[in-house]
């Protein structure tokens, strides 16, 4: 009898365990297989401030960027601290698939047209495949369309062109902090004197820190590796904020660079922060969904 009671208790335990585990079993049936989790929203938009971030417009999305850099703050009250003057750039960027983006722009500074392709080589991910950073390649061309200063000399069209190549490497460390390092080369077909190098090397560092869902603080700095022989130029330093309002991202910043294209702000930044040569500027980013995802095509 004692043995019987024992065996009964054992059975009871086993059966309860069975019932218990059946609830757990059912949850096990809905477990996901391990998957690749890509980091998203490393930056709010395709610009850290002046330079490109690793972010590209989503597939089938057109991004319109209106950028202004006003005059220098140290111009004083007469020029309303620079607000009476503005350098502008209008740009369009378009995402093709998960990795490719193309873009064009026109800046009032030196009447410069620019065009680029950007390709995402690696994507930061966790889970099934771990990749510590996102890496993108940027190649652009810039065309100065100002009238020739000396129309009488033999001016070549190629002299108007500048090429930019950049490797963008960024990591989203957590939901707030993202940092990016961007080795860059700017090749100018025409330089000021024969002593000046055609290739300007620089390393950009930039990042963002998210304060709230709608608000991030951004900064970027370009350290030039080689310096030109002529002209007094400075390294470009910019600080700013991103304000995210659903369809728009407003970027407000202070920078010592007047131009908003690469060859301009990397190799021809004339402002000195120490002298108050600071430009207030903004980018307004607006996206348009041109291509709807499969699921929404019928509606």
């Amino acid at each position: 009898m004692h043995l019987q009671l024992k065996s009964f208790l054992l059975l009871l335990t086993v059966s309860f365990w069975g019932v218990q585990s059946s609830a757990q079993d059912l949850m096990d049936l809905v477990e996901d297989e391990p998957r690749v989790e890509y980091a998203t929203s490393t930056f709010k938009t395709t610009r850290v401030i002046n330079h490109q971030s690793i972010k590209k417009p989503h597939d089938g999305t057109l991004l319109f960027i209106i950028s202004h850099h006003f005059g220098r703050l140290n111009q004083g009250a007469y020029e309303l601290f620079g607000l009476d003057n503005a350098t502008i750039r209008l740009g369009f960027e378009y995402g093709i698939g998960d990795r490719l983006a193309i873009g064009v722009g026109r800046s009032s500074f030196q009447k410069t047209y620019d065009g680029f392709v950007k390709y995402k080589i690696l994507r930061q991910s966790s889970g099934k495949r771990v990749m510590p950073l996102t890496m993108s390649w940027y190649s652009g061309m810039e065309l100065n369309s100002l009238k020739w200063q000396n129309p009488d000399r033999d001016n070549k069209f190629s002299s108007r062109l500048t090429y930019v190549h950049q490797l963008l490497m960024a990591r989203k460390f957590n939901s707030r902090l993202s940092l990016q390092v961007s080795p860059t080369v700017v090749h100018k077909n025409l330089v000021e004197t024969t002593d000046d190098p055609n290739d300007q090397y620089a390393v950009g560092v930039g990042g963002r820190y998210k304060i709230t869902d709608m608000f991030t603080v951004n900064a970027e700095y370009f350290a030039r590796v080689n310096e030109p022989a002529t002209g007094e130029y400075y390294n470009s330093l910019s600080v700013g904020v991103d304000i995210h309002t659903g369809g728009h991202v407003f970027q407000l910043h202070l920078t010592n660079s007047k131009p908003m294209f690469y060859s301009g702000f990397i190799s021809e930044t004339q402002g000195d922060w120490m002298d108050g040569d600071i430009y207030f500027g903004f980018n307004i980013n607006r996206v348009f969904t041109l291509k709807k995802p499969e699921e929404f095509k019928d509606k």
């Binding site: 998203t40 929203s41 989503h58 999305t61 995210h244 996206v287 969904t289 995802p293």
Partner: peptide
């Protein structure tokens, strides 16, 4: 999946 990719990003982020 959202119609607008940006909306999807905001939803998750």
């Amino acid at each position: 999946q959202f119609k607008k990719a940006l909306m999807q990003e905001d939803f998750n982020e």
